[in-house]
Write a protein that binds this DNA or RNA. Sequence first.
RNA 1: GGGGGGUUUCCCGAGCGGUCAAAGGGGUCAGACUGUAAAUCUGAUGGCUCAGCCUUCGCAGGUUCGAAUCCUGCACCCCCCA
Length: 426
Amino acid sequence: MDIFAELTWRQSIHQTTDDAFLPGWLAAGGRTLYAGFDPTSNGLHVGNFVPLMMLRRFQRAGHKPIALAGGATGMIGDPSGKSDERNLLCEETIQANVAAISTELRQFLDFDAGPHAAQLVNNYQWMKDWSYLRFLREIGKNFPVNVMLAKDSVRGRLDRDDGGISYTEFSYMLLQAYDFVKLHSDYGCELQVGGSDQWGNITAGIDLARRMGHGQLYGITCPLLTKRDGTKMGKTEAGAIWLSPQKTSPYAFYQYWYNVEDDDVGNCLRLLSELSRDEIESLDAARAADAGRRDSQQRLAEDLTRLVHGDQGLAKARQASQVLFGAEIDDLSDADLAEIFADVPSSQLARDRLSGDGLNIIDALTHAGLANSKAEARRTITQGGAYVNNRRVEDIERNLKADDLASESIVVLRAGKKRYALLSFQ
RNA sequence: GGGGGGUUUCCCGAGCGGUCAAAGGGGUCAGACUGUAAAUCUGAUGGCUCAGCCUUCGCAGGUUCGAAUCCUGCACCCCCCA
């Protein structure tokens, strides 16, 4: 497989240090490459996804990937792509973050692939023993400040009169540059990949390697995951989309991709999914013919959810999607409902409220918090916006009885399109 | 210190003695349409034991058969003069 050609049609290559040389060099196979992930938070998010998939694709093409957790660089803070100086994280946080992202990184790479088995490293391991003086003499001496000042990550900050850049962040590129050199000498790593904002750091590493007599190293950057309008992807009103199921449920993850704009979905399929070129191109054609079908979004959501959360996670996300978008609810278990409606408010009522005449629908909606007053509940029902287990209720006199339970003890109420609440009868 | 204007239901904003739970707009909520999109259209929008009743128009009193609307006092906000 020609990895360079694949990455090219996937539009995953933003810039390389040697367009003419790299395709042939990679086609020979067996190269070692790395990408770094700084522990700025306790998990990987969608923004980390592109370089991560780069590593994965390289490995499938027979190269050896190294995922680097930035235990050391994370202590400094990368100025790349940032307009303001960042606050330093405390050491315990960084260590916890390194542990969290390391676990997640493992999931995407194959660590038993013989000669091209993936490797996970933490740059804190080799940075922790350096002394300041020794680092300045051995590494710092190789960095001309005038070159450093010309890097976008620094230059963008020098023009600002409010804060500028600290010496600490200014030094960041030395650490990342040294990582590359270190990985070259310890693992024979010759290629670094990263987001387009990493260009300056990558070339800094290449320059350092040359000055220190390590020969020629290479770099490839991939585009940042942005929407057609230039804004970052992976953000919702509720916050970032994370890869960890604890931070973003498989359902929410699935829904995020399912709702990607028509204009952006082709790009996402190329950059992130593992669908074949044929399939992606036929999806493009289908989308051009009838965007309303949204086959592209569905395939994207399925592929990425399976990749991140497995078959089981995908199945749950799909089930939750069907239910939350109106499929009638019946014959589910309390456990199923609890999972599907994890973020939905739930309130308790005594079981015997269902016996006798039962529980009036107006009281049920009010109790569940779907209506602020009985008048509002009545209005919702009259206007056709009230549902029990996703079946519309039109009668104000309707009473809930034991038959209305969707599972052992739960009735699912809904007001309008999306406002759900559970009533649990104990 | 003197003079003038204001305070209305989630917001803006009409109302200036009864027909006012209070125009209009925004927002919000439903519904239709739709691609789990955007736009659009329709309806609703104080509460309740709902053909009725109760509570709302800065706060407290008063006039009146009847007040968001008139009078008195108080609080806060804005403008002009000093």
